[in-house]
Design a protein around this nucleic acid. Structure first.
Lengths: 152, 152
DNA sequence: CGACTCGTAATAATTAAAGTTACATGAAAC
DNA sequence: GTTTCATGTAACTTTAATTATTACGAGTCG
């Protein structure tokens, strides 16, 4: 399969929303993420169910962040997206009769479980506010490099 | 994408070969792994290039382990298989111009890098000999449960 | 020589994500 | 109230990746 980049996508979208006053439409978000408005709605719909964003229809409608940026972690977003499979490699058969394969699975599973726990812990450490702060830092750096006034 | 289960497959094959006297044909291995002989040849061919197994054609041909079981780690096998992508989730765009996306990527990459390092460390800790020992333990356990004589 | 087995190229099937089209629903503007 | 804008969703297509299959070439043992 393709790699699942929805977590990356929603983070991108959320940060743009955080930097933007007022609601952003699916179309605007889709443009800035180089994708399709329907994909945006599908994904953002999950965040809405979790109370992280709100949507409004009609004129001046669109998507708005409702949660506090400091309380939303990458881990929570991963969960909201349905906890998609993290690993692209895995066991051929999850419940084998073959004892040999059971040994193999046990060894691989142990390693995968540890790595997954570490990844989720790291995800739990990072909030949207952290990312926004990192973005602000990068933005200031770029302005400094280019000279104030040419900042874009 | 589908999940890559070649590491699981080759481990399964190697352990069966370790338990078996003489060479095993691609067809036999394919049967016990529920796959296709050509797939077996393709994958085992990589191990042959790495000096882990040898193949012989013709009558009484097939595959044999040439390496010492205690020296072959899961990590080495992962490398021999071409270091396939470990994660099924990832960034939408690896080299974005957008500063927002750069922040997102940096945060995700940091977490993925750590988790990958941990996984590879764990893989480096496990040898084929360890798996063979684990299999022997499971085998003895089952024989004990079923009673000697009914062991299968 | 003939059966057996690997070696390999080319192609199809499978699977899951992402994209697209189409249309319904609801809200604000006029 | 009708038009316009935007979300909500279902159905379908496209894309990217692994895995499976077919077909045939080439070496090896009996």
């Amino acid at each position: 399969m393709k790699r699942d980049s929805r977590l990356s996508s929603v983070l991108h979208a959320l940060l743009h929303m955080a930097e933007h006053d007022g609601p952003m439409t699916s179309e605007t978000l889709a443009e800035c993420m180089n994708t399709n408005p329907v994909v945006v709605r599908r994904t953002m719909g999950l965040l809405r169910e979790a109370g992280i964003v709100a949507s409004a229809r009609g004129h001046a409608g669109g998507w708005t962040i409702t949660a506090d940026l400091g309380t939303v972690t990458l881990r929570q977003l991963h969960e909201v997206l349905g906890e998609p499979a993290i690993f692209a490699i895995g066991n051929r058969n999850e419940t084998p009769d073959c004892l040999v394969e059971q040994s193999v699975n046990a060894a691989l599973d142990a390693a995968f479980t540890e790595a997954e726990a570490l990844l989720l812990d790291r995800f739990a450490d990072v909030t949207l506010a952290d990312l926004a702060a990192d973005f602000a830092r990068r933005h200031a750096e770029r302005r400094a490099r280019k000279g104030v006034g040419n900042a874009k």
